[in-house]
Measured scan of single mutants.
Amino acid sequence: PPDDERKKAEKAARSGNEEKAREILERLGYSEDEARELAKRLR
């Protein structure tokens, strides 16, 4: 489910793995720019 994926992205971002967070968010349908912004904010 998307919620689980989003949680994974948050966890990745918090542990400093912004790249992985961005990949997950892009898979969820965010654009590259949106995903980058979100990954930064989740950190």
Rank of each mutant, 00 (worst) to 15 (best):
D33I: 10
Y30K: 01
K8R: 12
E37Y: 13
R6L: 15
A21K: 01
G29A: 00
D3R: 09
L28G: 01
L42V: 03
A35E: 00
R36K: 08
E18K: 02
R27W: 06
R36I: 07
R41F: 10
E5T: 08
L42M: 15
A12N: 04
D3K: 08
E32L: 08
Y30I: 04
G16M: 05
P2G: 12
R36L: 07
A9K: 02
G29H: 01
D4N: 10
E32P: 15
Y30H: 04
A21H: 03
E34M: 07
D33W: 09
A21R: 03
L42W: 15
D4E: 14
A39I: 15
E34F: 05
E18H: 06
R6W: 15
S31W: 01
E37H: 10
R6V: 14
E23C: 15
R43K: 09
E18G: 04
P1Y: 14
A13E: 03
S31M: 04
E37N: 09
A21P: 01
R22S: 03
G29I: 00
A35S: 05
R14E: 05
K11N: 12
D4T: 13
K40W: 12
E19R: 13
Y30G: 00
E26P: 00
S31L: 02
P1K: 13
K20T: 09
R14D: 03
L38A: 03
K8I: 10
A39D: 00
P2C: 14
D4S: 13
P1S: 14
Y30S: 01
A21Y: 07
K7N: 10
R43A: 14
K11Y: 12
S31Y: 00
E5A: 10
R14L: 09
L25V: 00
R36Y: 08
D33S: 13
L38Q: 02
R36F: 07
S15P: 02
E10V: 14
N17S: 06
R14Q: 10
R41C: 11
L28W: 06
K7W: 12
A39G: 01
E23W: 09
P2K: 12
Y30T: 00
P2V: 13
E5R: 08
E5M: 14
A13D: 03
A9E: 03
K8V: 09
E26V: 15
E23T: 08
E34N: 04
E26G: 06
K11C: 14
R41H: 08
E34V: 06
N17M: 07
R36Q: 05
A39Y: 08
Y30V: 02
R14S: 06
L28M: 14
A13M: 05
K7M: 13
D3C: 15
E5N: 07
G29F: 02
K40Q: 09
L42R: 03
R14F: 07
P1L: 14
E34W: 04
K8S: 09
L25E: 01
N17Q: 09
R43Q: 06
A35Y: 03
G29D: 01
E19G: 07
R14M: 11
R27N: 08
R27S: 11
Y30N: 00
P1E: 13
G29S: 01
A35D: 01
D33L: 10
R41T: 05
E18Y: 14
K20Y: 12
E10Y: 15
Y30D: 00
K11T: 12
G16S: 05
D3L: 12
E26M: 15
L28S: 02
A12K: 03
R27L: 09
L25D: 00
A12W: 15
E37Q: 12
E32I: 10
A35H: 02
S15Y: 07
D33E: 13
R22M: 10
L42G: 01
K40N: 09
L38H: 02
S31R: 04
S31H: 04
K8Y: 08
A9S: 03
L28N: 02
R6S: 05
K11W: 12
E32N: 07
D33R: 09
A9M: 04
G29V: 01
A9I: 05
S31G: 06
E10H: 09
E32M: 09
R41E: 04
E18L: 15
E19P: 07
L25F: 14
R41D: 03
E37K: 12
L42E: 00
D3N: 11
A9G: 04
L42N: 01
E19D: 11
L28I: 08
N17I: 04
E34K: 05
D4C: 12
R22F: 04
I24T: 01
R43S: 10
I24F: 05
S31D: 05
R27V: 03
R22T: 05
R27H: 07
G16W: 06
A9C: 06
E18N: 04
L28H: 02
L38P: 00
N17P: 03
L38W: 06
L42P: 01
R22P: 01
R22H: 03
K20Q: 10
D4P: 10
R36M: 07
K11I: 15
D33P: 07
A21L: 09
A9N: 02
N17F: 10
A35P: 00
K11D: 15
K11L: 15
I24G: 00
L25K: 00
K40T: 08
D3W: 12
E19A: 14
E19F: 10
E18R: 03
E32G: 06
R14G: 03
R14N: 05
A35W: 03
L28C: 09
S15K: 07
L25R: 00
K8L: 13
I24N: 01
R43V: 09
N17H: 09
R27P: 01
K7D: 08
A13N: 02
A35K: 01
D33T: 10
E26N: 05
K20H: 08
A9Q: 02
R6E: 07
D33Y: 10
K40A: 12
R27Q: 10
E18I: 15
R22Q: 06
G29K: 00
E23Y: 08
E34T: 05
K7S: 11
D33H: 10
E19S: 10
K7H: 10
K40M: 14
E32D: 06
L42T: 02
K20V: 12
